[in-house]
Design a protein around this nucleic acid. Structure first.
Lengths: 241, 241
DNA sequence: ACAAAAGTGTTAGGCCTACACCCATGA
DNA sequence: TCATGGGTGTAGGCCTAACACTTTTGT
């Protein structure tokens, strides 16, 4: 962290923060990671103490290699989650002059996708909490706006990038995959059509974990075929819904 | 502009700039507006003097309402072009720690689409020049990277937003429209299929300007049906190519 | 026993693609 | 007169969307 002191410039400079919208999926619902704001460490005054907010924090202009790196660092500090800067998707900047009551602050928003089942334990429950997408509390600053924009960005991206690998556990079922898409796109699909479409990409692999399929009530399990998945991701694709 | 003086902060702050990639279309080729860098007014030292660069400049943290506004203001100052902040599409931030040799500078890149025929006259030829997309000179800073990212963003956006209205003159021909799409998407289309697809959106209106169509050699002229165009734009659309 | 969850295949319609000829102009 | 540019329609294939029944398990 930057040493507190006196930093002098010839022209006014804004502070820059990096905020993260971390989406997680538990096989049933889309969730978002929020933190409870405590005393500010870096700013001269405090704001929105005790309210829920997106994890994130100030870019250290003297040492953070870039904004995504700052986002990753702050995320680790505030929630315990380790997400490499390369896995953060930039969303947009938010720069309204009065969005922070303390001083001029511009934030660069990012989103990340995590397998909730695998990271829930790593989350620092003291300060951070997972909220269902349709039960988000009031948020500090303009964070509700950021959240909406990040979600709509995810909604867009899902048409061009296979997104399941980052959100689903290694072994998953077709209904889970479908529910994930339905949660993000906020629509309903026909089971048969959805399954066919997905299978045609050639990135799904049936997994036989020994437990015999006792009737149709127990769904078939799949994993992603990593090689095909990565190839598809590199070349991009067009998903019609 | 901010008064020069002493601005003091407890933690290091980066400078923030807003850069603009202005795309224009002359009915034949896609072009980009660049400026020749002169003496810097706002920074303590100069950099890349005499080289070509994207128009843009520093956000005034004390008075610019938001980053897009700063971009619009700087664009006006540097090139003479008036583009409202609302017509600037944000692309991404660029924040590598050493991207500016003078101090830590983070830029928020934007792109804009203009009707070249209508604004060419307004361009301040002393400092700014229009370059064909495939004849871009070497650029200052990381502006070549910004340019590439902005273009790929435009390429994405064109699938979801009708883009012709902003780039084409009021009256245009089908071949011009097709050429525009081919320039941006860097592909070739079949004339008949392209025309049919476009006509099905219901945003094209044939215009009879008196001059009789003397044979097929003189293309049919169209204008956009503004009402339908705006409706389509609001609701978004899915364009397959 | 009944409700809920999951598996499976077919058909019709629409959209995309590919493709060829004619006419008028300008060189 | 020849090359260029522009207008026009159709047929086949693929993808999409709509749709019903059976099985099993859990209550």
């Amino acid at each position: 962290m930057a040493k507190k002191g006196q930093y002098v410039y010839e022209y006014p400079h804004p502070a820059v923060t990096a905020d993260c919208v971390v989406f997680g999926y538990d096989g049933k619902e889309l969730k978002v990671l929020l933190i409870k704001r405590g005393k500010e460490k870096e700013a001269s005054t405090t704001a929105y103490v005790g309210e829920w907010a997106l994890p994130g924090g100030f870019l250290d202009a003297d040492s953070d290699a870039n904004v995504a790196f700052a986002a990753s660092r702050e995320l680790k500090e505030e929630t315990g989650l380790t997400i490499p800067a390369g896995d953060l998707h930039e969303v947009a900047s938010f720069s309204e002059i009065n969005r922070d009551p303390r001083e001029r602050v511009i934030t660069i928003a990012h989103y990340a996708l995590v397998k909730l089942s695998e990271v829930k334990a790593a989350t620092d429950a003291e300060r951070a909490e997972w909220f269902s997408w349709d039960a988000i509390p009031a948020l500090a600053f303009d964070h509700d706006k950021i959240l909406r924009v990040a979600f709509s960005r995810l909604k867009q991206d899902i048409h061009f990038q296979p997104v399941g690998f980052e959100l689903l556990p290694e072994i998953f079922t077709m209904p889970q995959l479908q529910n994930l898409y339905e949660s993000i796109l906020e629509v309903k699909f026909d089971r048969r059509n959805f399954a066919n479409k997905m299978k045609h990409f050639g990135i799904l692999e049936e997994v036989d974990d020994g437990t015999p399929r006792r009737g149709t009530r127990t769904p078939i399990k799949y994993r992603f075929h990593k090689e095909n998945y990565d190839r598809l991701k590199r070349k991009g694709f067009q998903l019609e819904f």
